[in-house]
Each structure stands twice: as structure tokens, then as C-alpha cells.
Design a protein around this nucleic acid. Structure first.
Length: 115
DNA sequence: CCGATGACAAGCA
DNA sequence: ATGCTTGCCATCG
């Protein structure tokens, strides 16, 4: 199945905007939630373009499956992403979110299914 | 956890 | 078109 770029982007933004403050999710989880489980990389691409022209999208709440802040280079500064997360009550050490899978991880597939 | 593999899409030379 | 890289992920070891 081919992917409609505009439709894909819109779906990604929609999910990202739904991420609660103090929580975070992964590229793969978003991809799965919008129906493209094996296109996690495209989510990253979309996010990359989103924070460049930033549209009040909490891109800092999107990390990789290991809770690692791989997208920090696309922010104003390398520390920006970490600061945003810490200001929401999250703990970050060595470029990773603490209690990632235990507490912080927010599953859009599960949460949005209920709505 | 880390490294290597295989899968998929897009951008670039 | 080909080859390599990328805000990735699941699986295997």
C-alpha cells in the first residue's frame, strides 16, 4: 500500500498532539497507531520537518523505542529537547528518559482506541 | 545493553 | 538507476 504524504503527516501530527504532558511515545508506536507499523522512519522524517517550521507540536515527547532522545539535533540547541522534557517532570540521563517503559511510555494505539 | 541483519521509504550524489 | 544514509524497529545472539 502506497503512502499519501499529506495524509500521513496529518495523522502523525494528530497523534503527537494527543500525547499527554509528562509522557512520551516512540516513532514506531505512532506509526503503528496510524496504520503503518513498519514505517517508523517516515514518522521521524515528518517530525524532522515539523519542528523546523514548528507548529506547537510537542516533538520533544517523541523518542525512539529505547527512550533515547535521538531527535535533539533538530531542535534549537542540543539541550533544548532535554530541557523541555525535564520541565514536564521527566528525568533524563545520558540522553535517555528514566523509567521509560515503566512509567513514561504512552501507547497511542491503546489510548486512542478507547476514544 | 550492544552489534549485526533484514525490512521499508525518502533524500541525495 | 545504483549505493549510502537516515530522529527506526523486531529479532537473534
Amino acid at each position: 500500500m502506497k503512502i499519501d504524504r499529506a495524509d500521513f503527516e496529518q495523522a502523525v501530527y494528530d497523534v503527537v498532539r494527543s500525547i499527554p504532558k509528562g509522557r512520551a511515545t516512540s516513532y514506531g508506536a505512532i506509526a503503528e497507531a496510524i496504520g503503518f507499523p513498519n514505517h517508523s522512519r517516515l514518522v521521524g522524517k515528518v517530525m524532522n520537518g515539523c519542528n523546523a517550521t514548528d507548529e506547537h507540536i510537542p516533538a520533544h515527547r517523541v523518542v525512539n523505542s529505547q527512550g533515547r532522545l535521538v531527535g535533539r539535533d533538530s531542535f534549537s540547541s542540543s539541550e533544548r529537547m532535554r530541557e523541555l522534557l525535564e520541565s514536564e517532570g521527566l528525568r533524563v540521563s545520558d540522553n535517555r528518559i528514566r523509567n521509560w517503559k515503566q512509567e513514561v511510555f504512552w501507547n497511542p494505539t491503546e489510548e486512542l482506541k478507547i476514544l
